[in-house]
Amino acid sequence: MSVLVLADHDLGTLSPATARVVNAVAQLGPVDVLVIGEGVDEVAKAAASLVGVAKVLISQSDAFASAPADSAVALLETLAVRYQFVATSAGSVGRDVIPRLAAKLDLMPITDVVKILGPNSFERPIYAGNAVQTVTSNQPRQLLTLRASAFRAAASGNAAPIEPVVATGITTTAKIIAAHRTESDTPDLATAQIVVGGGVSVGSAEGFKLIETLAKKLGAAVGATRAAVDAGYAPNDWQVGQTGKIIAPDLYIAIGISGALQHLAGIQGAKKIVAINTDAEAPLSKLADVLLVGDLFDVVPQLIAELDRLGVKS
């Protein structure tokens, strides 16, 4: 049995999610990683360094920049016949590519996998994370998207060979007109070990700066509830929850978040939760391992001041 992993990358850097996917699927058989795009030589080198990777396939074409999903599916359709498993993270790329590929191959994709029980058995959350479904699939080929946050990352130190793959005959009627990016120097939200999240109780985009300051002090990623995003307090790519990003940090600090069901669905993998809230009866307050009852505008500045006193630098 062999596995092909479609690598996630951005701005010439391999996404941490790819290392987690590689580690997760290594139990299924030898793992090859496919890197597609333009100017992705360094990405391929980073993928080749992951323990568990047998080889890296690299395909470079301007078609991958103009219409990444269509072009990726066209290439994957030709490569998939060599593999029993095709997997990628359940991020924006995976959610776009895998269902398209499944339609082309007339297969059922298995999405949001959080545990691999065997070559044809997988666990995935359903009902907004309130239940876990065991899926048994007897298809000749499995197409998987994995929640990267549910798995540990593969170690580095490997030196897998890198082989070029020529992408020919790729045509598409779609193209990217514009891309809008939120600049941030914080860790990737989906794979961060510490996440500081803010809710609509923060009150404004200016008030959300307090959340960002604490996150920087802790070297953490910044998250937000859908209500905070909808109110314009935080950018869309910070949204955590059923309709946002699914996270599983070692520590989640929830500030001014009551805990709507959709938000709780996105943080169920968190190992420790600290809640700061005036309402001790809020759903997230009851779920938290540690609860600080108080006004966030009093508590958070005190936390930042204590971190400063201890010499913690941003």
Rank of each mutant, 00 (worst) to 15 (best):
residue 118 G to D: 15
residue 182 T to D: 13
residue 301 P to A: 07
residue 167 A to D: 01
residue 67 A to E: 05
residue 263 H to I: 03
residue 231 A to F: 11
residue 240 V to P: 01
residue 1 M to V: 14
residue 192 A to K: 03
residue 143 L to S: 01
residue 101 L to D: 00
residue 192 A to E: 07
residue 183 E to C: 00
residue 311 G to L: 09
residue 242 Q to E: 11
residue 15 S to G: 07
residue 142 Q to Y: 00
residue 297 F to S: 10
residue 151 F to L: 03
residue 59 S to P: 05
residue 65 A to R: 08
residue 61 S to T: 09
residue 306 E to T: 08
residue 61 S to Y: 05
residue 291 L to E: 09
residue 179 A to H: 12
residue 189 L to E: 07
residue 200 V to I: 14
residue 178 A to V: 14
residue 117 L to I: 15
residue 182 T to L: 13
residue 180 H to G: 03
residue 294 G to E: 09
residue 142 Q to P: 00
residue 241 G to F: 04
residue 65 A to S: 14
residue 59 S to W: 01
residue 173 T to W: 08
residue 176 I to T: 01
residue 128 A to K: 14
residue 136 T to H: 13
residue 179 A to N: 13
residue 243 T to Y: 13
residue 106 D to E: 15
residue 200 V to W: 02
residue 150 A to M: 05
residue 265 A to Y: 13
residue 282 A to T: 02
residue 96 D to F: 13
residue 243 T to M: 08
residue 123 E to G: 06
residue 277 N to M: 08
residue 132 V to M: 14
residue 157 G to L: 08
residue 179 A to E: 15
residue 54 A to N: 15
residue 95 R to P: 05
residue 302 Q to M: 12
residue 70 D to L: 05
residue 22 V to R: 04
residue 122 F to N: 04
residue 258 S to A: 10
residue 204 S to E: 12
residue 287 L to A: 14
residue 277 N to V: 06
residue 294 G to K: 09
residue 186 T to C: 10
residue 223 G to A: 02
residue 97 V to E: 01
residue 284 L to E: 03
residue 134 T to F: 03
residue 54 A to E: 15
residue 168 T to Y: 02
residue 250 D to F: 05
residue 164 P to H: 08
residue 273 I to G: 01
residue 206 E to A: 12
residue 278 T to M: 14
residue 277 N to W: 11
residue 171 T to N: 10
residue 184 S to G: 01
residue 38 E to T: 12
residue 265 A to K: 10
residue 181 R to W: 09
residue 118 G to L: 08
residue 273 I to E: 02
residue 174 A to Y: 09
